[in-house]
C-alpha cells in the first residue's frame, strides 16, 4: 500500500496577473521503504510540493491521501494535520534547523515529548537514535558547538524519533561538503531500508542519488519523465 498518494495536485499562488502556478496537476505515489528523489531547477516547485505533501500548505486542487487517510480532497478534510505531522512525518531541512537553546539530546527528545512518550522510553529512544546517527558522544552539546554535518545528523535523528511513515528532506546536503553530504544521504538510505520508512528528498546534486528507487523531475510545477 502506498504511504502517500497525491493526485492532480495543483497549487496556485496569487491571482490575476500575479498568478503563479507553482504545482500543476502533480500525481505520484510512494511506498513504504521507498527512496525517492525530487529534482528540478530553482523555482520549479520542489519546496511547494513538500509543503503540500507535509500538510503545511493548502493545495488549490487535487487530493492527498496519507497513510490511508484522505487529508485533502479539494479542501482540507478536517483531520488534525498537526497531529499527523508530529506522529507520522519527519522533516529534514537544508539547514539543520535545530532548536538552538536545546542540546542535541533534547532536540531529539522534543518530538518524543510532544507525543507524550513516557520518560524512560523516551530516553532509551534518544540514546538509540543518537547511536544510530553516530553522534552519541556529542549529545550534550548545544547545536552551535556542533559541525554542520553533526547538526544534520542530529536533525535526522529528530526526524526519526517518532518512527515516522514518511521522511521529507529539503536539500539536506546543500549546506554540506561532498563527503559529509554523502554521509547524510547514506543515512537516509539506511533509514529507508532498515525501517521501512518512505523518504522523499529534494536535491540538486545528481551524484547524491545513486541507488534511489525513484527520481522525479519537476519543471515549472509539472512532473517530467519519471525515471
Amino acid at each position: 500500500m502506498a504511504v502517500l498518494e497525491i493526485t492532480g495536485l495543483t497549487k496556485i499562488f496569487g491571482s490575476g496577473r500575479l498568478e503563479v502556478r507553482a504545482l500543476d496537476k502533480v500525481s505520484l505515489a510512494i511506498q513504504a521503504g521507498e527512496l525517492a528523489a525530487l529534482m528540478g531547477p530553482s523555482g520549479s516547485g520542489k519546496t511547494t510540493l513538500l509543503l503540500c505533501i507535509s500538510l503545511i500548505l493548502e493545495p488549490t486542487a487535487g487530493s492527498v491521501v496519507f497513510d490511508g487517510e484522505t487529508i485533502y480532497q479539494d479542501g482540507w478534510t478536517g483531520l488534525d494535520v498537526r497531529r499527523r505531522r508530529r506522529e507520522k512525518i519527519g522533516f529534514v531541512f537544508q539547514a539543520a534547523n535545530l532548536i538552538p537553546f536545546l542540546t542535541a539530546r533534547e532536540n531529539v527528545l522534543f518530538p518524543l515529548n510532544l507525543v507524550g512518550l513516557d520518560k524512560k522510553a523516551a530516553e532509551r529512544r534518544v540514546r538509540e537514535l543518537l547511536d544510530y546517527m553516530e553522534i552519541a558522544e556529542r549529545s550534550h552539546y548545544l547545536p552551535a558547538l556542533l559541525s554542520g554535518g553533526e547538526q544534520q545528523r542530529v536533525a535526522i535523528a529528530r526526524a526519526l524519533a517518532n518512527r515516522p511513515k514518511l521522511i521529507l528532506a529539503d536539500e539536506p546536503t546543500a549546506s554540506l561538503d561532498t563527503a559529509r553530504g554523502q554521509k547524510v544521504m547514506e543515512m537516509l538510505k539506511k533509514i529507508a531500508r532498515e525501517n521501512q520508512t518512505a523518504v522523499i528528498t529534494v536535491t540538486h546534486d545528481a551524484r547524491m542519488i545513486e541507488g534511489f528507487d525513484q527520481i522525479y523531475h519537476l519543471e515549472d510545477g509539472r512532473l517530467k519523465n519519471q525515471v
Binding site: S54, I56, R82, R83, R84, R85, R86, E87, I89, G90, F91, F93, N97, I99, P100, F101, F110, P111, L114, R158, A159
Partner: peptide, 17 residues
C-alpha cells in the same frame, strides 16, 4: 527564535506548547 518556532510548528508542536 521565530525560526525555531516555525520549526516547532512544522514538526507538529501544538500552539499551546
Amino acid at each position: 527564535k521565530i525560526r525555531s518556532i516555525a520549526v516547532m510548528k512544522l514538526i507538529g508542536a501544538p500552539n499551546l506548547v
